[in-house]
């Protein structure tokens, strides 16, 4: 990585810089190969050439991946979103309560059972979007740091999730609702959303302004970009994506619980940062985050594969998050020296 950074600097005058996603992709391959080697050494079987395992890896990470798409955009503006996990919890509870089947005697709203699936979907988008808009409005208009605003939302939304049914889980969704997260649907939903926002960031005015704000907010403002309005939109989109993740997760589990999505925000941030999204803002892509998501999944599943205890997995996850941020800071310092 150090070598590529140096060559990028000297060649920048004449040649386009190698996309940073390439480095992430190489990292993914290397990590997978390491587990492959360890697999043959200690377990006596292949890690990578196992369709079932690959399916589980991608299924496990794709729901958090949906959140990570939104978190990526937030981080590109130079912000952070700590509330996505709690928004998943609150949205899952509320959306599920509008998706209950009449077969269930103790529905939250006994008069509102067997509703068409579009109702809970819209509810999820509205609740997620609303929570995100509050984040964005706090950050854009009161100028409080994104860390604090979304930390408040993280605590408050978790409170909503618990208050909504006084801690009772919400279960027995309609069949159509349960279909949303069935089988490989979470992966398909992730891919569609990833493609959509990849295009939005790369080819639309929205994307250009998102990068511009993260790159130099002052420049964006004097260039006539409505920074406040744009920030509210980015956070609202991140909230809606958390809402979609809540739909998929509660549908896949066929129940919603107040504790759902706990710590997802950190996993999502880790995926983005591993994928090369800079916490300083202005740099990163959905493709990078998708690759970061796969790295994250491969590492977690690799440790399970090597039969390493779940306790160690948590510790290692912590190390990965910190290591990714250290790498990001090191990249920035190299850049600062170069200028």
């Amino acid at each position: 990585m150090a070598v590529s950074a140096v060559s990028a600097r000297t060649d920048s005058q004449s040649r386009p810089v190698r996309p940073p996603e390439m480095n992430v992709f190489i990292g993914l391959l290397v990590i997978a190969l390491v587990f492959e080697a360890l697999g043959w050494l200690f377990i006596g079987q292949s890690f990578v050439f196992n369709l079932q395992r690959l399916q589980i890896i991608i299924l496990q990470v794709s729901i958090v991946g949906i959140i990570a798409i939104g978190v990526t955009q937030v981080i590109i503006t130079g912000g952070i979103d700590l509330s996505s996990g709690s928004i998943v919890g609150a949205t899952a509870m509320i959306a599920m309560s509008f998706a209950q089947s009449s077969d269930y005697a103790r529905a939250v709203y006994p008069a509102l059972t067997d509703l068409p699936v579009i109702v809970p979907i819209l509810v999820a988008l509205v609740i997620g979007g609303l929570a995100g808009s509050i984040n964005g409005a706090l950050i854009a208009y009161t100028k409080i740091p994104p860390f604090i605003a979304t930390l408040g939302m993280m605590v408050a939304a978790r409170g909503v999730a618990k208050w909504y049914t006084k801690g009772q889980p919400v279960s027995f969704p309609t069949e159509s609702y349960a279909w949303i997260g069935a089988g490989l649907n979470p992966v398909i939903i992730f891919l569609v959303l990833a493609l959509l926002f990849h295009l939005a960031l790369k080819y639309t005015v929205y994307g250009n302004h998102t990068y511009a704000i993260g790159s130099n907010q002052q420049a964006a403002r004097v260039s006539g970009i409505r920074v406040e309005r744009h920030l509210v939109m980015v956070y609202a989109i991140a909230g809606m994506l958390a809402g979609i993740a809540a739909l998929v997760l509660s549908s896949k589990n066929v129940t919603a619980q107040a504790g759902m999505g706990m710590m997802y925000e950190l996993d999502a941030i880790a995926m983005a940062v591993i994928g090369g999204v800079s916490l300083a803002g202005g740099r990163g892509s959905v493709v990078g985050t998708a690759l970061g998501m796969l790295i994250f999944g491969v590492i977690i599943s690799g440790f399970t594969f090597l039969r390493i205890d779940a306790y160690y997995q948590e510790m290692i996850k912590g190390v990965i998050i910190v290591a990714a941020v250290v790498a990001d800071v090191a990249r920035q310092q190299r850049r600062a020296k170069a200028v």
Binding site: N208, G214, S215, N216, A219, A220, S223, R283
Partner: peptide, 17 residues
């Protein structure tokens, strides 16, 4: 007043793409 992470055309047309 430039955005460092954008290319030249994006900077020239920033806010009036």
């Amino acid at each position: 007043a430039l955005a460092d992470d954008l290319d030249v055309p994006s900077n020239l047309y920033l806010g009036r793409e």
